[in-house]
Design a protein around this nucleic acid. Structure first.
Length: 487
DNA sequence: AAAAAAC
């Protein structure tokens, strides 16, 4: 399977190959042809599966070949957080560079002036967070009647954040005749309801079981005492491993984010922070510092847990075990992206027992425990003391010239936490197969019985263009159903 | 329990 087989235009194909992609990810392979055929779509996919390109690419194709209506946006993409919206906008610019399509990024935290100017000039695509979109709409700056394509991204996150009423309202402002794509990592009942209400005979695509974790990520639970100082100590010990190139460290509270960042900096780490209480400009600046490697540690709240696509994050740490198992999956998903391997450590206290149980239940896998204290005592009594030292200079004492390439084969870093480095080998996984073959056939949840929903089949025209084996409804429509759906 | 999102 190559991008060339998906029906994208030649120009777009070139943009994709120029960007260095040759093979579509599973979700791209199944979604792109359907989207090009103007079908509604439900994509059950975690972030990091290539989901963004799965809707951005065909959207660009459709828009660049359609006629633009003066000053009216023809397409709307809704994202739960500002960072995600900005990220999608970047993607749009990257792939749409060769087209004349214009775009406006409508997010809060930045001045409205530029956004309004862009809207007045007229744009083809809106990429927005719900709050700012509603705000601008209320001020009369946006007309959505020309929006014939809608993408609701990260729907389950929108639900968590209480955005569903906003989404519903926005949906009613759009024309009824439109194409709607909904992406979600999970399908809780309210999202199903939303889909039933606003999507028409959608094709269902599921690329990996919801809430399953990426097998490229090695995971460890690290028991620590609940004491904040002890936790920071343990964290520093783990961060001291030579193989920690860079890391995102998640905390449950914004105050903890601030404290931890301050503490890490004091100990000589190149750290930064990101959370929702910061100015948007500051958020972006910190994220850029991390992306550019100017800092290699980013302490974060859950604002950064989902969807953020930063290349080459080697480690994720949960300084606090997340309260919700979903968040765990999303957090650790910031590493091990694009087929790379990643390592995730979660510091756990006695109070986290239930959370951990829930996480293990959700992911269906038992996570290995790593006992730092025991390791230190058993192996090197000096280790505890070493772990308290600032990290400065430690790296210089390790074997630099050896190169970092072959990290798996490396000897453990000398003084701090020998077990920690050893342990990952113990859970070595079988050799991975190429992405495409990982799962023989996507496993599909039984599709919602949309065909017999009260308002089902309103637009039977869609029935004629069923193009895939995997929308859960292939064969001829049985007699008993024809009566209901008028097919 | 927290975090996120509009001013």
């Amino acid at each position: 399977m190559s991008f060339a087989d998906l029906g994208l235009s030649d120009e777009l194909l070139k943009a994709v190959t120029d960007a260095g992609y040759t093979e579509p990810t599973p979700i791209q392979a199944s979604a792109i042809p359907s989207v090009l055929m103007m079908r509604d779509l439900i994509g059950i996919a975690q972030t990091g599966t290539g989901k963004t390109a799965a809707f951005v690419l065909p959207m660009i194709d459709i828009l660049s070949h359609g006629r633009s209506r003066a000053r009216m946006p023809r397409s709307l993409i809704l994202e739960p957080t500002r960072e995600l919206a900005a990220q999608v906008a970047e993607n749009f610019e990257k792939y749409g560079a060769g087209t004349k399509l214009s775009m406006a990024l409508l997010i809060g935290g930045v001045s409205m002036g530029d956004q309004i100017k862009a809207l007045e000039k007229g744009v083809d695509v809106l990429i927005a967070t719900p709050g700012r979109l509603m705000d601008l709409f209320g001020r009369g700056n946006i007309l959505l009647t020309g929006c014939s394509m809608l993408v609701i991204d990260e729907a389950d996150r929108m639900l968590d954040m209480g955005f569903i009423p906003d989404i519903e309202e926005i949906c009613t402002k759009l024309p009824k005749q439109r194409q709607t794509l909904l992406f979600s990592a999970t399908m809780p009942p309210p999202i199903k309801k939303l889909a039933d209400k606003f999507l028409d005979n959608p094709k269902m695509i599921e690329v990996s079981r919801p809430a399953s974790t990426n097998l490229n990520i090695k995971q460890f639970l690290v028991p620590v005492s609940g004491n904040a100082m002890k936790k920071r100590e343990a964290l520093r010990q783990l961060l001291g491993q030579d193989e920690v190139r860079n890391a995102i460290i998640f905390c449950n509270r914004k105050t903890t984010v601030r404290e931890l960042n301050k503490s890490l900096k004091k100990h000589g780490f190149k750290a930064g922070e990101i959370h929702g209480d910061m100015e948007q400009a500051q958020r972006i600046a910190e994220l850029d510092l991390f992306k550019d490697g100017k800092i290699n540690i980013l302490v974060a709240s859950d604002v950064a847990a989902r969807g953020l696509d930063i290349k080459g994050v080697s480690h994720v740490f949960n300084f606090d075990a997340p309260w919700h198992p979903d968040d765990y999956v999303h957090r650790i998903g910031r590493t091990g992206r694009g087929g790379a391997t990643g390592i995730a450590y979660t510091l756990i206290t006695s109070e986290d027992a239930e959370n951990i149980q829930n996480i293990e239940k959700l992911t269906g896998q038992k996570i290995d425990r790593l006992d730092l204290g025991a390791a230190a005592e058993a192996e090197t009594p000096a280790a505890t003391a070493a772990s308290e030292e600032p990290r400065r200079g430690r790296r210089d004492r390790t074997t630099r010239g050896e190169g970092r390439r072959d990290r798996s084969a490396r000897a453990p870093v000398a003084e701090a936490a020998p077990e920690v480095v050893e342990a990952p080998a113990a859970v070595e996984e079988p050799r991975r197969q190429p992405r495409q073959e990982r799962r023989p056939e996507p496993e599909f949840a039984p599709p919602p019985r949309r065909d017999i929903r009260p308002d089902g089949g309103r637009r039977p025209r869609r029935d004629e263009r069923d193009d895939g084996p995997d929308d859960g409804w292939n064969g001829p429509i049985p007699e008993f159903l024809k009566a209901v759906i008028g097919g």
